[in-house]
Every structure is written in structure tokens, then in C-alpha cells.
Simulated scan of single mutants.
Amino acid sequence: MDLFAGISVSDYPAAVAWYARLFGGPPAFEPNDVESVWKAGEHAYVYVQHRPDHAGHALTTLFVTDLDARLAAIESRGLSPTAVEVYAAGSRKATFTDHDGNEIGFAGPI
């Protein structure tokens, strides 16, 4: 299975800068002047697109094998999770919220 998840944003330049910090670098590619794409996994991509009327409604969670390492890397780039949840099933999730209110979570085993 492949994933190509889109996130609508209202301020495209600010969103590109924020997601570059979240994902640790510039977009993998920019197919046009209102869309930037980051590779989030082997067959997984997350893109932001300037769509102000739809901004702020994304709920995306990416599962990673080493959540602590991922969070440490993101926090070293100046972003902190807005929420951290621990689940009884032995996993946890850290959620980051962009300027529009879109929620991007990273989850993994405890």
C-alpha cells in the first residue's frame, strides 16, 4: 500500500517552513507553485497545498518504529508536541499542530 496524504493550508510559505522543520528538511519535490511534498516513509508522502477554504481540518498520524528518536529530532528543530497520549494497548502518540490547526501525529510503541 502507498500513501499520499494532503493537508490544506492558508499561508503556503509559512506552512512550507513549518513542515520542513517537522520533517527535517526541504520538500522532496514541488509539483507546482502551491504544493510541496515530503517523503514520510518508503511508500508514504505528505503534501501541503495552498487551499485556504479547506485549511485546518487535517488529522494525520504516521506510525514510526522509534518514536523517541523522532520526537527528539523534531524538538531539536524547535517544534514541540501540543499533546502526548499514552494508550493502554502499549503505544503512544505525539501530536503537532500547525498554524492552521491541522494535527500531525507520530505514534509508536512505548
Rank of each mutant, 00 (worst) to 15 (best):
D2Y: 13
D2M: 15
L3G: 06
L3S: 10
F4T: 07
A5P: 04
A5V: 02
I7M: 00
I7K: 04
I7P: 00
I7L: 05
S8Y: 07
S10D: 13
S10I: 09
D11W: 06
Y12F: 10
A14E: 15
A14C: 11
V16W: 08
V16L: 10
A17W: 00
W18I: 01
W18Q: 03
Y19S: 06
A20R: 07
A20I: 00
F23Q: 10
G25S: 00
P26L: 14
P27W: 03
P27G: 04
P27T: 02
P27D: 08
A28P: 10
E30D: 03
P31I: 06
N32V: 07
S36A: 11
S36F: 09
V37C: 03
V37Y: 06
W38G: 01
K39V: 14
A40V: 09
G41Q: 05
G41E: 02
G41S: 01
H43C: 10
H43T: 04
A44W: 05
Y45V: 09
V46A: 04
Y47L: 02
Y47V: 09
V48E: 03
Q49R: 11
Q49N: 12
D53E: 15
D53V: 15
D53F: 13
A55C: 02
A55H: 06
G56T: 00
G56W: 08
G56S: 09
H57G: 11
H57L: 14
A58C: 11
A58S: 10
L59N: 14
L59H: 14
L59Q: 15
L59A: 12
L59G: 12
T60K: 00
T60V: 14
T60D: 05
T60A: 03
T61R: 00
L62M: 03
F63A: 14
F63V: 15
V64G: 04
V64C: 05
T65E: 15
T65D: 15
D66Q: 03
D66P: 01
L67M: 04
D68A: 13
A69F: 11
A69I: 10
A72W: 07
A73S: 02
A73I: 05
I74W: 00
I74Q: 02
R77H: 06
G78N: 05
S80P: 02
S80L: 09
P81I: 11
T82C: 13
T82M: 12
T82Q: 14
A83Q: 11
A83N: 12
V84E: 13
V86D: 15
Y87V: 06
A88G: 14
G90W: 00
G90E: 14
G90R: 02
G90Q: 04
G90N: 11
S91F: 13
S91G: 10
R92K: 01
R92N: 09
A94Q: 00
T95L: 10
T97R: 08
T97V: 11
T97S: 06
D98V: 10
D100I: 03
D100Q: 04
D100G: 07
G101Q: 10
G101H: 09
G101L: 04
G101W: 11
E103V: 01
E103R: 12
I104T: 08
G105H: 06
F106L: 06
F106I: 03
F106E: 08
A107W: 13
G108N: 00
P109F: 15
P109W: 15
